[in-house]
Design a protein around this nucleic acid. Structure first.
Lengths: 205, 205
DNA sequence: TATTAGTTAGAGTGATCGCTCTAACTAATG
DNA sequence: CATTAGTTAGAGCGATCACTCTAACTAATA
């Protein structure tokens, strides 16, 4: 008998996923075809279906992977010590070309949640997790007196998280915006939002 | 001879556009077919092509119309007197079902700009126009001493505009969020961002 | 009323789609 | 080496796609 090599299998799967992501970003949801993915991955259609059940399964996997990767990175940034600089980092990265592509991919995938409850649940769950991490950070800041204690941490986290989406949306609306200036403005915005009303020192950036 | 009726022609065009929008929201970019649009509009494919050159032409028209309508409404709200209440209005409306559908449509259309420079230019132009209206309002507020004069009106307008997108994105990520609470938080956010540092009275809501 | 151009329909076109199927090939086991 | 199962290829299937074409129909002019 011959036994299968699960490592190799998974590697091939990831290879196909990467190819699908490339095609997805290049051709969009509507233009994406199995044939394209196969060509990009250098395999045949029959081969592809040994790794994925259907086209939708590929798309779901692409979207889920991108979402998890984004959430993971953000969580790591926040937990490494400073949520606000994490936000700044995300914003600064927003203008980079490949990350814009990722966001475009995310937009199309998010639009699909309107039709696919399973994707919607996944998106809601990942968003909630990330939001909670941010909320925890804010709550801790409130205990330290660095953040306005009258704010609801969960709500504030939701708002800040929304601002991140808004910033990334900016670069889609107009890629030529003066992002450094905008980033400065957002730093002011966040600082004024979060700092205690007493006029005490602002929270660490 | 018989002369054509341009009014009737335009009406039919709009009818088809409305049908296309319905199908677009229902089936998404990838699932949208000419046959579907024809069925929704109650016409035949041959008929449809008397009004539009191609499928892409229909999609472009749908997106452009939605974009212009959104910009027009926002401009009207702002110019009717109060930009900040206009923002609040937009946010309050974000959770309504049909407006969420509109935003989903916008997301997919915006994603298309990544592949279609003409759409990208249109989006950039409309965004800029709307942003300028908001910037003018802010500049006027600065003259009246209601808004922090150290802010760059154009940059601040961009940021506020981004927040609107962020809020609408929230409802896509999680439709069950407590939007009234979030709206309150955003009102605080905006007020703290815009009000002069002197601790003078906040700008009118 | 005769003419002519706008309006509408729907069958039909070639192309492409997602996907299946058969079968050759490869390599790990006995 | 023989066996067996995993790997890969690619032709081909039915369905569907965007779109065209012919022609019937309608109504405004002359």
């Amino acid at each position: 008998m011959r036994r299968l090599d699960p490592v190799k299998h998974e590697e091939k799967r990831q290879e196909i996923l990467a190819a699908a992501k490339t095609c997805f970003a290049r051709d969009g949801f509507k233009g994406l075809s199995i044939a394209d993915i196969c060509q990009e991955a250098g395999i045949s259609p029959g081969h592809l279906y040994h790794y994925f059940d259907s086209k939708d399964a590929i798309l779901d996997a692409v979207g889920a992977a991108a979402l998890e990767e984004g959430a993971r990175q953000f969580a790591q940034l926040v937990q490494s010590g400073n949520a606000l600089s994490a936000i700044a980092t995300v914003i600064e990265e927003a203008k980079q070309r490949n990350l814009r592509t990722d966001f475009i991919l995310f937009l199309q995938w998010a639009a699909e949640t309107h039709r696919n409850p399973k994707l919607a649940a996944k998106l809601r769950e990942m968003s909630k997790t990330t939001r909670s991490i941010l909320a925890n950070f804010l709550a801790k800041g409130q205990q330290n007196g660095l953040i306005d204690p009258t704010l609801d941490p969960e709500i504030a986290a939701t708002v800040l998280f929304g601002i991140l989406d808004g910033v990334r949306m900016m670069t889609v609306r107009d890629p030529k915006l003066d992002m450094p200036k905008i980033l400065d403005a957002i730093k002011i915005l966040v600082r004024r939002f979060l700092q205690p009303a007493t006029g005490a020192s602002a929270p660490r950036s």
